[in-house]
Simulated scan of single mutants.
Amino acid sequence: MTSNQTGTHGAVLQDTAPEGDGRPIVQLRNAGKAYGNIRALHGVDLAVRPSQVTCVLGDNGAGKSTLIKIISGLHQHTEGEFLVDGEPVRFSTPREALDKGIATVYQDLAGVPLMPVWRNFFLGSEITKGPWPIRRLDIEQMKKTADEELRNMGIVLDDMEQPIGTLSGGQRQCVAIARAVHFGARVLILDEPTAALGVKQSGVVLKYVAAARDRGLGVIFITHNPHHAYMVGDHFSVLRLGTMELSAERSDISLEELTNHMAGGAELAALKHELAQVSGVDVEELPEEKDLTAL
């Protein structure tokens, strides 16, 4: 990566290096979040280690968004503990999370479609040159740095001046990942990065998720697709109605078992039993409980 530089917000931009001891960078212990009388999250345990992809799966309303908001500093937890490098924290703003090396790439990417790729890469953290108070943007340095960082991640663009809106969805996701790596992220949260993509573009994004892991980052991959999660995941956590239903290492669970937890195999089996009581429904054509993992 590029050597240390200073952005306009004053943060030192350092190379990302693997942390060798394997201790969690981010850890939640029995964490939860309540909005008044509504418990959106309860009793969640999660550990994010360097050079690992932690996949968090769940259906709509499972609590994935609330979990992201707590870790990224948008909301504060109301139960349990939130630790970074073993120290309890309570972020007030996303900037505080960024200062600890926790970066979030949201599904909408928060870019400016008509701006060039290099401008989006440095958006809000532009490099400047010249004496104060007449400092100006160092455009050539930003173009060069953005191009180098994208190439380090395996992304080759012919023209850094092209509007980022002309890139495919997968390419824009990859630019956002490379940007987070460059600005010193140690934990990268990816919010449903493949949700709106086709098969080929999803494969492109998954390749760069693995590349971020190989560069020593701890990755939190939020998704509702167990097949995508299993391709790159090292640890799997399944949320259901705000609680952690499953927490397992890759070696301890198969894709079928993961899909079964995600799809709610027990609930589908109960539904089949209820449908058997309804006239006109041929439950013999429905899959058996052991086959529900295919759903």
Rank of each mutant, 00 (worst) to 15 (best):
H224V: 02
V204M: 13
F221A: 09
S237A: 14
R240Y: 14
I222G: 05
A229V: 12
L217M: 15
D234A: 01
Y208Q: 13
K207N: 14
R215V: 04
S237C: 14
H227A: 10
L197C: 11
G218I: 00
V238K: 10
S202L: 03
I220D: 06
H235W: 09
R213F: 09
A229H: 09
V238Y: 08
A195M: 04
F236Q: 05
K207M: 09
T194M: 05
P226R: 10
L197I: 12
K207F: 05
L190T: 02
L206Y: 06
V232L: 12
V209N: 11
P226H: 04
L239M: 10
L206N: 08
I220F: 08
S202F: 06
L217S: 02
V219W: 01
A210V: 00
K200L: 08
A195C: 02
P193L: 11
M231Q: 14
M231A: 15
V219C: 14
V232E: 04
H235P: 10
A229W: 05
F221Q: 06
Y230G: 08
H228P: 01
H227M: 07
G216A: 05
V238I: 09
H224N: 12
T223V: 08
Y230L: 11
Q201M: 11
N225G: 00
A229S: 10
Q201V: 13
V232M: 15
N225S: 10
H228F: 02
V204S: 05
I222A: 06
V199F: 09
R240I: 04
H228Q: 15
K207Q: 13
P193F: 05
L239Y: 09
F221L: 15
L190I: 03
D234I: 01
H224W: 03
D234W: 05
S202R: 11
I222C: 12
H227W: 02
N225D: 14
H224Q: 11
L197V: 03
H224G: 11
